[in-house]
Design a binder for these strands. Structure first.
Lengths: 345, 345
DNA sequence: TGTTGACAGGAAAATGTTTTCCTATATAAT
DNA sequence: ATTATATAGGAAAACATTTTCCTGTCAACA
């Protein structure tokens, strides 16, 4: 692979000139420009981004810390991130923590060593770890899809409690009054979605009943078990709100296995609108999250922060303000009616 | 962030000594070692991997070129890759070509600029592009899950024709003689799986009929349409082999929509055993690929090649041999019987 | 005692860029 | 004509490492 020195020699100019031509960082006479371009083309020169990174202190790399890439939701989000990042000439490196939060520390160190320009977090990190990280490095962080409370770290996602509220209100509108909740163990998400659930019940004068709320890790299998537990109650709910489609699918399986019909015996509503929900029979009514879009916006905002931060290294004031302004992006959710909810009057 | 110089100063030793202690590249007296370790701990020093990469000409980064990360199959494979890579201290950067093969070129350039240590390809690349790439750089390549013919590039995956053969033989064993094939547009995969299909029919004295083979891009939706087309035949097949679970799920949907029963009216068998296949009703009988494992093995083999290559830069002979030996890893597939295939005698 | 060898550790080169600093030339202004 | 100014372009520093080369000390051996 040719390097800048070889190009300089071939074009009969100095190294500086080649650099200037490549980056347009200072005017160069047309004559020399041409000589350089010719040499570049002939030798198929590509600047070594490592050397660049070293001196510019910028890697054009962002890290995505993801609980589990093989999970449909995360994969889709990741795809959104990658899409925008690629357009903006950033590379994406993935840190799959396999829902094993201990790995987090290892990955944080890795990202520090690699001098990633920014990090997108896809799960609710313990705030102490975040704080510890921020103490060590100024690398911008951003939460996507998981709104962690008690931090000023930028966020992009949807209004979780409103979305849950909408889901449950919809069930109520359809005449349901005994409404179960199956929610996940993710602290941030679980709490907010449960909050929306309770709020909806309260606003419609329906008492919140503890036995109607079951709480499991988010997965198809746990959704199944959660529903099993729910069906052991003396009186079944007529509708169940599952806080993720994964769990909803498991719950659906369980209901069918018990010989009950959906939506005739029990209505079901999910959350996320992942691919699964359209494929399952009956098709799942659910809250749609613009997952891909969340990923894209997350990348956009993060890169924005990275670049304004870079520019403003002299004048700090302006940067902080502009970051503050755009530090929370809430995208629209929607309810998509499919086949798992039925009137109940 | 502290650098090696600061550590050296703090420990009262030379830069070289710090480096030697960090890497164990040359013996250092216990006394100085301790001084260095203390300084490292106190200042929380982490070697800058960029500077390292620059001088060692090694990034510990591998690229994965993936048609579509949000696709369940690819996401799972990626997760396998990342898993092994992380253990071996490699980072994974993703190149999502969105099934848009033009982006390929852009990504190849990007990887060259970034000096990735190796690349895993997850789709059947035009061989000319590969050849062009190899002309420009010695970066090791590897195909995972897609066996491209006519190249010596290492491969990790399953025996595609045998697997298809097994699927179709299974249907035949169950008494089916009119067996449809829905296969994808991916050239390498489509060709091999079709080959297995034909071979199975031939070996059992069943004529291959053109109208029983329909050919569409691989997706749920296209699976649906493919099945629609198949059902317009004067005489329907009694069983259909879909060359991917995605298509099978679409096909299943279509059959159900037409008011037919699965497996009573039509048997269906898929390929891949992605998450979907267990969640769909009836549950899909399919060929299981060890997807995650393929990813892991791909990463393992690639990294192996990278490292032996690095070591052997002096003596080239041994490297080439050892690479040749292990350049194709075929993992075991299996047939998983679920609910979409029924006897037909 | 003098010579050889092993070996710990430092100085400096090398990696491939960008950018600062400087020089020399050309243009404009007095 | 002389000075001032802009500007094209080169030399070299800087980035954070690893590694080669060298020096000096100490032990072993003749």
């Amino acid at each position: 692979m040719p390097n800048i020195k070889m190009i300089a020699r071939k074009a009969g100019v100095s190294i500086s000139t080649v650099s200037r031509v490549m980056n347009g960082s200072k005017p160069v006479s047309p004559e020399l420009q041409k000589r350089v371009y010719d040499a570049v083309k002939q030798m198929d020169y590509k600047p070594n981004s490592i050397a660049r990174s070293l001196i510019l202190n910028k890697t054009n790399l962002i890290g995505v810390v993801v609980p589990d890439v093989s999970n449909s939701f995360h994969a889709q989000l990741l795809s959104g991130v990658e899409g925008y990042a690629a357009e903006a000439d950033y590379g994406v490196i993935i840190c799959n923590v396999y829902r094993n939060w201990d790995k987090q520390q290892k990955y944080f160190n890795l990202m520090l060593e690699r001098h990633v320009d920014g990090i997108i977090l896809l799960h609710d990190n313990p705030l102490e770890e975040i704080a510890a990280f921020q103490k060590m490095s100024a690398t911008p962080l951003l939460f996507a899809s998981v709104p962690v409370e008690g931090t000023t770290i930028p966020f992009v996602g949807i209004d979780e409690v409103q979305a849950s509220y909408d889901a449950v209100s919809y069930l109520i509108t359809k005449g349901h009054r005994e409404i179960g909740l199956i929610y996940g163990e993710c602290y941030a998400l679980g709490k907010l979605r449960r909050e929306g659930y309770c709020k909806a019940l309260n606003n419609h004068g329906i008492p919140v009943r503890d036995e109607f709320m079951v709480h499991r890790p988010s997965s198809v299998e746990h959704g199944y078990h959660a529903m099993e537990q729910m069906l052991r109650l003396e009186k079944n709910p007529t509708a169940v709100f599952c806080v993720s489609d994964e769990m909803a699918v498991g719950a659906l399986d369980c209901v069918l296995d018990k010989g009950l019909k959906i939506p005739d015996d029990i209505s079901l509503i999910g959350f996320d609108d992942i691919e699964l929900s359209q494929v399952v029979r009956p098709k799942l009514t659910t809250i749609h999250q613009p997952i891909h879009e969340i990923g894209r916006e997350a990348a956009r905002l993060l890169i924005d922060i990275i670049e304004t931060k870079g520019k403003a290294s002299g004048r700090k004031k302006t940067y902080e303000i502009s970051e503050e302004i755009r530090s929370k992006i809430i995208l629209n959710h929607s309810l998509v009616e499919r086949e798992t909810v039925k009137d109940h009057f």
